[in-house]
């Protein structure tokens, strides 16, 4: 049975729950998990219950990397570190935005920690507000589409590149739609000494507005359209990419999600979709996905 126990309060079909489960499947019992505030943290630990079958700590929204630094330092000081992995599982808001400074500090100091970003592309826990990870034109509650708005005006920040620039020995992207690949990468990240990073794309049925049964399918579509390229970087260099056989047009990914629905109905719709297609094309070319 999974070390992330059932009974938690995640929405039916929750992508974060998949991510949490796969991380623990990859790591086993010899791990300490640090979670910043966010959906996964809240729905797994309604006092006096906890879904975690491993030691777990939540402190605040923006400090998980620093808390993990302290856990690692204490384990070293007390002679308890041995092979225990210290792993942060944080949302995109905690990672891209409010917690970035603490992450930068921890990666610079070179703690032996693994940071897993569970990216559902918005602040879900507080009701689907945009974050630095929200993709271009997605409609969220703080970047809604409207008469004069086509949704989120900014591009998604390139977080793996930011981490790689810190000199991290291992950075990878993964998707809950490809569980074996994700589990392999999480295992590898934990095994590599030093601060490592796995960025997991985790569709959220509630926030992205699709049926709960489609969580995994939507995750796969992001990869098949090159909206979410899967790759590994070692010491700053891309060393492995997952090739796409017959790359699908981005419409196939966009049309199944309510957050992009306006792109298909508003005036000048083709312009919007074209711009999104350009992102996928860039990914395909840049990472050599085809």
């Amino acid at each position: 049975m999974s070390l992330l126990k059932p009974g938690h309060r995640g929405c039916a079909g929750c992508g974060d729950a998949f991510a949490g489960k796969f991380v623990l499947d990859a790591l086993g019992e010899d791990v300490v998990i640090v979670s910043p505030t966010g959906c996964l943290e809240v729905f797994t630990t309604p006092y006096p219950e906890s879904a975690w079958g491993v030691p777990w700590i939540h402190s605040l929204f923006e400090n998980a990397a620093a808390v993990a630094s302290g856990v690692e330092a204490a384990m070293n000081a007390l002679g308890k570190k041995n092979n225990t992995k210290i792993v942060i599982i944080g949302g995109d808001g905690a990672t891209f935005d409010i917690g970035l400074q603490a992450i930068s500090g921890a990666f610079e100091r070179g703690h032996d920690i693994t940071y897993i970003c569970v990216d559902n592309e918005a602040y879900m826990n507080t009701g689907i507000q945009r974050s630095g990870a929200t993709p271009l034109y997605a409609s969220t509650t703080t970047s809604p589409h409207g008469k004069v708005s086509i949704g989120n005006p900014q591009h998604k920040k390139n977080m793996p590149a930011i981490i790689a620039a810190h000199g991290s020995p291992y950075v990878a992207t993964a998707s809950i739609g490809y569980a074996p690949d994700m589990i392999k990468k999480v295992k590898k990240a934990a095994q590599v000494k030093g601060p490592t990073y796995v960025h997991v794309h985790a569709p959220c049925c509630t926030g992205w507005k699709f049926d709960s049964s489609k969580t995994i399918e939507v995750g796969r579509l992001a990869v098949e359209t090159a909206m979410w390229p899967l790759y590994e970087m070692e010491n700053g260099e891309v060393t492995n990419v997952r090739k796409i056989k017959n790359r699908k047009p981005v419409e196939e990914y966009l049309k199944v999600q309510g957050r992009f629905k306006h792109l298909f109905t508003m005036d000048g719709k083709n312009e919007g979709i074209k711009k999104v297609q350009a992102i996928a094309d860039w990914n395909a070319k840049h990472f050599g996905l085809e």
């Binding site: 302290g70 330092a73 308890k80 400074q101």
Partner: peptide
């Protein structure tokens, strides 16, 4: 902010 946060993690670990 990270100083106190790191100590939260360390103290919870028993340090």
């Amino acid at each position: 902010f990270s100083a106190i946060s790191a100590l939260i993690g360390a103290s919870a670990t028993g340090a």
